[in-house]
Design a protein around this nucleic acid. Structure first.
Lengths: 197, 197, 197, 197
DNA sequence: TATGAATGAGAATTCATTCAT
DNA sequence: AATGAATGAATTCTCATTCAT
């Protein structure tokens, strides 16, 4: 009977997650009440607490989804069979596109991480770290093979790039002058240009 | 009689602002109660509401202070008597140092702006815009005079750099391997390298 | 299981309404705190806000109840099969008795109506108007058929009578010299006497 | 220098009293803050507390003024040299005109009396009683001399009439179809007609 | 699997009043 | 005569969560 992912007929947990994602992005985690979420999802509070242990669990689920997706894509690009400068450029551009396509998740990610309890926060940080290190490894690979400048520590370069990705949710508008792909190309280009020896 | 800026003797509004800044940065705006602020400042709630119309006003005051400071510094560097690549590098490095020196304000700025009411938000955006445009003008000046590449739109370059500044509050630690100045130099360097024709 | 209207066993909304009615009448709407109401009803604040959107909603419910009751009774007397002077007298006396029997509601009604928000106030006024007009129609009927004097506009006569009803909560005491019925008969009599041609 | 009673130049206590009267009538006593009063009067809180011991004192002053005025006028009409039916009619009409002319005071009087502390309340009640009794004496004089019906106790007749006076603040509008004097004549007429033997 | 009534702690804000100057 | 900073208690309302059904 269910056909879409969002409508009235999607499984309850998905509907709750979709509603929570939208509301957290629009209003922030603290400003979104459990009541609003269940109303938006068309269920009752009891149902929410049947599937999720707490409001915080919902937030963590949003994170887990984003992290999983981005790690998968990074791994795919990094493991490709191509010169390192190509692989870095592709990965750098892809994370921009993926982030723009899931701007809600990104807003939540960067604005609400500190709302998680210490233990859950730690768990997320560990996964983030893994992602960061995979990306850094690409930079270092290019530095060791001499195609990238070694003037800047690789860690800092990763943070430089992810700063701009993080920032997207602040300024990017779908109806702006640049398409997703153009923004991605420009940002990847800036990264690669900065890395020229 | 008052000599310090923070102690028991500083004027009440300053003490409130200092306490609020610290707590907003540590816990986030929504998670910080008015009660906590007044306790930290050693005054009563009535006193707070005597000087500030609302909790939100306190937040706006923090913003106003940061914006004023950063605009002043940018103007000074941008108006200096030096080649444009030097002026851009100095401004780009200075905003990093200033941000690190006021990491609390920066965290609040980037994480809590969406907590302001629409009208106050607009006001802050207007001032942010002015700052952004002054910075962009520097980039464009270099592009027109041929010392910077024109491959990337100036607006995007400004957002690229400020993404990394914004991001500082996420990863920079005073006890990390790099000093403030080193980070600033590296980030300014990356910007200038990316702009090489 | 529930048998009384007030005890520990009555449904929570009724208990809240009963407590609020008594306290609003005794102390006035503004002087009665939500805390007092829930304590008197033996429930918690959360329960109150589960059933009523606001303190004001509670007040409006009190109004709605009174208005419904009085309109029903007026309609019954006005539509009866009797000479107009008899129907007016019965209606005029009945509203006195009903008001005395619900003196709390009446006090609240006349003293606290201006505490309602504009929109709710309007809604109450509309219902009041309907009541006023039904009563006025009775007076006019008698005037047209010649049994009542036309010296005074019917509207004014209605306000004259309701002034005295309104006033009851100021002076009527159950232990005073006159019974409810005696007061009602006297006031209806005064009205009819004033209307003699 | 001072020429009006209301402007910027009137003595401070008068200005406070005028501002308080207007605000109490518009918003109710409880809804009017001391801050609003002093702002409307163009002075500071300290000044208010210099002249009045409390917010309640301000309210009592408004009462005292009304009571004094109405008692004076009633005494004048009641002591006149005319037949009792003329004196009653004049007094009954005059209180209507005076009430309409001071509709703010009247609203406050009838709506806020229960806001006074028990002792002040008692004091006001005593003066009200004196007024009521002077009026009742007029009715009784007419009843004893046979020009008024004795069907209704004099006390009730006084309350009947004052109910309608009280009610004026609910329905009377200066831009309505009837002038002050017309309303006064009609209401006095109704009273006298009801008293016909 | 889901409901919805009920909890209880805590939120921001208001306000009459005081008092040193 | 008048100021205005400061108090502290009270106010309405919100909300994540629980639990009997």
């Amino acid at each position: 009977m269910a056909k879409a992912t969002d409508g009235d007929t999607a499984p309850v947990p998905q509907r709750l997650l979709a509603a929570a994602t939208r509301l957290f992005a629009e209003q922030g985690y603290d400003r979104t009440s459990v009541q609003e979420i269940v109303e938006a999802a068309g269920v009752t509070k009891g149902a929410l607490y049947h599937y999720f242990g707490s409001k915080e669990d919902l937030l963590q689920e949003v994170y887990a989804r984003v992290l999983r997706l981005q790690q998968e894509r990074l791994d795919a690009f990094a493991d490709a069979d191509a010169p390192v400068e190509q692989r870095l450029r592709d990965a750098a551009a892809d994370v921009v596109v993926t982030t723009i396509e899931n701007l809600d998740d990104a807003s939540i990610f960067f604005r609400s991480m500190h709302h998680l309890s210490p233990e859950k926060n730690k768990q997320v940080r560990v996964e983030r770290r893994r992602y960061h290190e995979r990306f850094r490894a690409l930079v270092e690979e290019g530095q060791h093979s001499g195609v990238f400048s070694t003037a800047t520590p690789a860690d800092l370069i990763v943070d430089y790039h992810f700063g701009s990705v993080h920032h997207l949710s602040t300024w990017y508008r779908p109806d702006g002058p640049l398409s997703q792909q153009e923004v991605a190309d420009h940002l990847a280009d800036l990264l690669l240009r900065a890395l020229r020896p």
